[in-house]
């Protein structure tokens, strides 16, 4: 009887070991800012969608999302994820203050994917993914300059002051410098906020009597600025350009329903979903494509293109089920 019992126990243990190995469950933690503006709300939605898709596709993948309101909370979230022994972590930083905790994760052997605003130290991540901030406003500004026939008065509403915003604004100024007949009248921050942008635009309209085009750092602010313009009853502005592709704006471009808004530039919020997928593939040691001749299975740095969206290609960028 005893022997049978022992044999049974051993058998179960071996079986469970085999079972455990066959179904290694990969836990992926995701830490990102919470939805404080339309673009980030879309990014939150994409993260949730990636989680749902992966967990439906593969029951050995568990994804835990942490949305944080500030960087201290984010550091706590990452520490908490490390306590929960995640195999991979995807970090969309509030700012580079997360560097030390990301380094801690990497040194513990966690597979690390860092996005966008990045970390301030090299070699502490497996993959870095970002949208192309420089091209984001370069393509937009080149398009706008052409629409303006390379002359006229331009106003700019920038985002919340931060390094990314500085890159974008500087790029716009650089492009404008090439065209001496375009005057950049003013740059004021609109904090990526529709109300703030509306009041900035109201002030602009009081101050400047002839405006040809308005460039805002994203679509949320563009809608706010356009609201102010409509309320003013003025007729001088010919072009509004935002960025980031909110679905209503894309729909408008697709249907050609607003003569003021003819284009947009992508800064895809799906970057977070892409990153989650890279984390899953990377932590499992898989390749994107077995036919690729690379020493490393996945690239270290990935820069997603910022693309100009006009009526011709708008339908490719229309995501009706996204929240904004």
């Amino acid at each position: 009887m005893k022997k049978v019992l022992v044999a049974f126990l051993v058998l179960t243990m071996v079986a469970s070991l085999g079972f455990a190995q066959a179904t290694k469950v990969y836990k992926v933690g995701v830490s990102m800012p919470s939805a404080t503006h339309g673009w980030m709300a879309n990014a939150n939605w994409w993260a949730t969608r990636a989680k749902t898709d992966w967990e439906k596709r593969d029951k050995n993948v568990q994804i835990e999302l942490k949305f944080s309101g500030n960087v201290n909370q984010q550091v706590s979230d990452i520490e908490d994820l490390l306590v929960k022994k995640v195999d991979a972590i995807v970090v969309f930083p509030h700012d580079t203050s997360v560097t030390s905790v990301v380094e801690k994760a990497f040194n513990q052997g966690v597979y690390v994917v860092v996005l966008d605003r990045g970390v301030s130290k090299e070699g502490i991540y497996d993959i870095y993914i970002t949208n192309d901030d420089e091209a984001y406003t370069r393509k937009g500004m080149e398009w706008l300059a052409k629409q303006m026939s390379f002359k006229g008065n331009l106003l700019l509403i920038s985002g919340t002051p931060c390094p990314i915003d500085t890159i974008r604004t500087d790029t716009i100024k650089e492009v404008v410098k090439k065209y001496p007949n375009i005057t950049l009248l003013d740059v004021q921050p609109g904090d990526w906020n529709r109300q703030k942008s509306l009041s900035v635009m109201e002030n602009y309209l009081q101050k400047y009597k002839a405006i040809d085009a308005v460039y805002t750092a994203d679509d949320d602010m563009m809608l706010g600025a356009m609201q102010a313009y409509k309320e003013s009853g003025r007729k001088d502005i010919k072009f509004f350009l935002g960025g980031g592709c909110l679905k209503d704006v894309i729909k408008g471009i697709m249907d050609d329903s607003n003569p003021l808004v003819k284009a947009d530039v992508t800064y895809s919020p799906s970057v977070i979903a892409t990153s989650i997928s890279y984390a899953v593939i990377g932590v499992r040691g898989e390749k994107l494509n077995p036919n690729i001749y690379q020493v490393r299975a996945l690239p270290r740095r990935i820069i997603l293109p910022s693309e100009l969206v006009t009526k011709a290609n708008a339908k490719d960028f229309y995501v009706p089920e996204a929240p904004f």
Binding site: G69, N70, N72, S97, T99, S100, S120, P161
Partner: peptide, 17 residues
């Protein structure tokens, strides 16, 4: 303590809230 923790001060976010 917080500046030492991050070894950097990000002016828009430091101590926010």
């Amino acid at each position: 303590l917080l500046a030492a923790r991050f070894n950097t001060v990000s002016t828009p976010n430091f101590g926010l809230g």
